[in-house]
Design a protein around this nucleic acid. Structure first.
Lengths: 224, 224
DNA sequence: ATAAATTATGACTAGTTAGTCACTTTAATT
DNA sequence: AATTAAAGTGACTAACTAGTCATAATTTAT
C-alpha cells in the first residue's frame, strides 16, 4: 500500500499521479512500464515516487486496487436475483461494464490491459491469485444455477465456471480482433474503449450468448 | 530468415543453438528473453548470434517457423473427412497435439509460451497476423460443418470460429490453472508438458467438449 | 520570526539490454 | 606451404531501467 506521504497529498495531485500511471500500465506490460518516463511526463522528480510508494510493485498493486474498487461498485449495482435467468443477468453485467468504461475510461483501459498481460513473469503469481478468486465467484454462480435446475449437472462445475469466465474475456478479445474496439488508440485519444460502439457491442454480446447458452442450460443433456 | 552462415553450420551446432533459444523464449516473453544470457549458457560469443541472424526478431521468427513446421506435420496427419463428426476430429487434433508434445517437448513448450505472451508490444502485430490465419482456418471448418447441416446456422460464422478457436486455448489454460500441467516446471525438468498426464488430460478435454458441443451442433436452435 | 518537520529533488549507483566491429582463429583453396 | 575466405570473438557503445540518498525547498508548529 502507498506510504502515508501519498495519502497526505492533496487530492488533485494524487489524482494526476494515479491517472498518469494508470495510462502507462494500461499500455505496457508491468515489466516494460517505465516509472522514469511517467515522472518525466508529470514533471516531477523520480525520487518523489519513492516517497509515495515502496517500489514499483507497491504502486502497481495500488492501481489494481483502485481500478478494481471503481469497477466493483458498478458490478455490485446488479444482483442475480433481480433477473429471471442467468443470461439476462450476464448481459446486464456487460452493460454496467459499459457504463464503467464510459465513466471511467482510464480504469477501464487499465483493467483491459491487465487481463491481456497476465503472463509477464513478475505479475504471474499476482494474476493467478486474482484469477482463482474470479473463477471461484463464477463457480458459485454456476452451482446456484444448477441448484435451481437451470444449468445442466453432467459437467464438473469447475470446468463450467472456467469456460464461462473465459467467455467474457473472449468476447472482449474478439471485439478487439475484428477491430471494433482499439484500446491502444482509445487511450491515446483519451476516449472510452466502447465509445459510440455501444449498440454494435451489445449485438455482438447477444450473438455470443446465443451461441454459448445451449452449452450451459439444462435440457436433454441433463442427467438429473 | 537466418543468414547463410547459420545454415552452413553443422547440424549439431545448429540444433544446440536452436534448442537453447527455444527454451529461453518458451519461458520469457519476447522483450524479456535475453540473448546475452543464452550465449553465456551456450558458451559462445554474443557476436556469433549476429553472424547467424539479422537481429533478435529475425531469430524469433526463425524459431516460430521452426516450431510451427514441426507441429504442422502432426496436424496434417489427420483429416476431417476421416471422422464422422467434427468433435471426434477435434479430439483427435488434441491427441496428435499430445504426440507432438511428447516427441518435441521444446517446440511444444515454446508454442505454449507463445500463445500466452501475445500482447507484448513488440510481438503484437506479429501475433495478430498469426491469429487472423488461425481463426480463418477455423471459420472454414465451421462453414463446412454448417454446409453439412451439422452445425447451427443462426450465429455469424466468425463468432463461432473465434469461440471454437478459443475453446482449445481455454482448455490448455485451464489445465495449467488447476495445476495439472506446469510448463515452467516441465521446461526446467526437460520433460514434456503432458508427461504421464495423458489420461487425465483426455478426460478433461472430453468434459470440455461435452460442455461446448451443444453450443455448436445443429438442433432445435437451427433456423434452417 | 525561528525552529522543526515534512516533502521534493535529481544526480548517482548498479544493473540490465541489443547490437557493433576491429581483430583472431579456423577452414578451404590454390 | 602460402594465400584467401569464412567463422568466431569479446570488449565496447549507447540506451535503458529501478531504486537511493544527501541536499534543498516548502510547510507547519512553536
Amino acid at each position: 500500500m502507498p506510504k502515508a506521504t501519498f495519502n497526505k497529498l492533496k487530492a488533485e495531485k494524487k489524482a494526476l499521479i494515479t491517472k498518469a500511471f494508470l495510462r502507462e500500465f494500461a499500455v505496457k506490460p508491468y515489466d516494460e512500464a517505465s516509472i522514469s518516463e511517467v515522472v518525466k511526463q508529470l514533471g516531477i522528480a523520480k525520487g518523489s515516487i519513492y516517497q509515495y510508494f515502496e517500489d514499483k510493485m507497491d504502486l502497481f498493486l495500488y492501481l489494481i486496487e483502485k481500478a478494481n474498487a471503481v469497477k466493483a461498485a458498478y458490478i455490485a449495482q446488479i444482483k442475480r436475483d433481480d433477473y429471471p435467468d442467468f443470461w439476462s443477468y450476464f448481459i446486464e453485467l456487460f452493460k454496467v461494464g459499459l457504463n464503467f468504461d464510459t465513466e471511467h475510461h482510464l480504469e477501464s483501459h487499465f483493467l483491459f490491459g491487465l487481463s491481456q498481460n497476465l503472463h509477464s513473469p513478475s505479475v504471474k503469481p499476482l494474476f493467478d491469485n486474482m484469477m482463482q478468486q474470479a473463477v471461484q465467484i463464477f463457480e458459485e454462480l454456476v452451482k446456484a444455477e444448477i441448484e435451481k435446475g437451470l444449468f445442466r449437472n453432467d459437467i464438473p462445475t469447475n470446468i463450467m465456471a472456467y469456460s464461462l469466465f473465459h467467455t467474457g474475456r473472449d468476447m472482449q478479445e474478439h471485439l478487439q480482433f475484428i477491430g471494433l474496439v482499439n484500446p491502444q488508440k482509445s487511450i491515446a485519444e483519451q476516449l472510452p474503449v466502447y465509445h459510440h460502439k455501444e449498440e454494435l457491442l451489445m449485438e455482438h454480446v447477444q450473438h455470443y450468448i446465443n451461441l454459448v447458452k445451449p452449452a450451459f442450460n439444462a435440457s436433454d443433456h441433463d442427467k438429473s
